[in-house]
Simulated scan of single mutants.
Amino acid sequence: MTKLLKLTMAVALLLGAVSTTASADARKGQKIFIKKFKAKCGFNGAKFAAKHSQAEWEEINEAGNFKKEMMTICPDVKESDIKDSWVPHLYDFSYDYANDSGNVPSC
C-alpha cells in the first residue's frame, strides 16, 4: 500500500507541474512585452497585438512563426531577444488583445 500511495503522489505532483508550465498567461505576456519590447518596438502592447486578428495570430503561432512575425513588426527586436519560454505568453497576450477581440490592454 505504501508503494501505491507514493506512486500516486508522484504522478499527481508530475501532472501538476506539467499542467502549470504548459499553460500560458496573457498577463505575463503583457508584462514581458512592457519590460522587454515596448522600447524596442516604439509602441505599446495594444498596438502590437492589434496588428493582427485572433485568427491571424493563431495561424502565425501554429506555423511556428511568432518570433519571425514579432521581428517583422518590431525591426529592432532580434531573435536572440525573444526567449522561447516567453513565446507562449506573448502569443496569449497578442491573441487576447488582437484587433478583433474587443479587449484593450493596460499598457
Results as ranks from 00 to 15, higher is better:
F37R: 03
T72M: 06
A39L: 04
E59M: 12
A39I: 04
F48D: 03
Q54D: 04
I32F: 02
T72G: 05
F43E: 05
A49T: 07
C41V: 03
I34D: 11
A39V: 04
C74P: 01
E69G: 10
F33K: 13
G64Q: 08
K40N: 03
C41I: 02
E69S: 07
I34F: 07
E69C: 06
E56W: 02
F66W: 08
E58M: 09
A50K: 11
A50Y: 08
E62Y: 14
K47P: 15
K68T: 14
G64I: 00
M70N: 06
N61W: 15
F66N: 08
I32Q: 11
A46K: 15
K36G: 12
G45H: 10
N61S: 13
A49P: 00
E56F: 07
Q54L: 03
N44T: 09
C74Y: 01
F33G: 13
I60A: 06
K35F: 07
N44I: 03
C74F: 06
E56L: 01
G42V: 02
E56R: 10
K67R: 13
I34E: 12
F48T: 04
E58H: 13
I34G: 09
K35H: 12
K67D: 13
T72L: 10
N44C: 04
A46C: 15
N44H: 10
K51W: 12
A39W: 07
C41E: 05
T72P: 05
E69R: 12
K36D: 14
E62C: 12
I34Q: 12
C41D: 00
A49R: 07
F33N: 06
K35L: 11
G64Y: 03
A63C: 10
Q54A: 07
M71N: 02
I32T: 11
M70Q: 02
F48S: 07
K36Q: 14
G45E: 10
K67L: 09
K40G: 03
K47H: 14
N44M: 07
A39S: 01
K47V: 15
N65Y: 09
K38Q: 08
K68A: 12
K51A: 14
W57T: 00
F37L: 01
G45P: 11
A55I: 05
E62V: 10
S53Q: 03
F48Y: 08
C74A: 04
K40E: 00
A49N: 03
K68C: 11
T72N: 11
F66M: 10
G64D: 09
I34W: 11
G42T: 08
K36F: 12
K38A: 09
A46T: 15
M71W: 00
C41K: 03
M71A: 02
K51T: 15
N61A: 13
I60H: 11
F33D: 02
A55G: 05
E56Q: 09
A46Y: 14
E59D: 15
K40L: 05
K36Y: 13
I34T: 14
K51R: 13
E62H: 15
I32K: 11
N44G: 12
E56S: 04
I73Y: 01
I32C: 10
K51Y: 13
F37E: 00
F33L: 05
E69Q: 12
E62P: 15
E56Y: 07
A46R: 14
F48I: 02
I34L: 12
F37Q: 00
H52N: 08
A39N: 05
G42N: 00
K36E: 14
S53E: 01
N44Y: 00
I73D: 04
K67A: 11
I73L: 06
N65R: 11
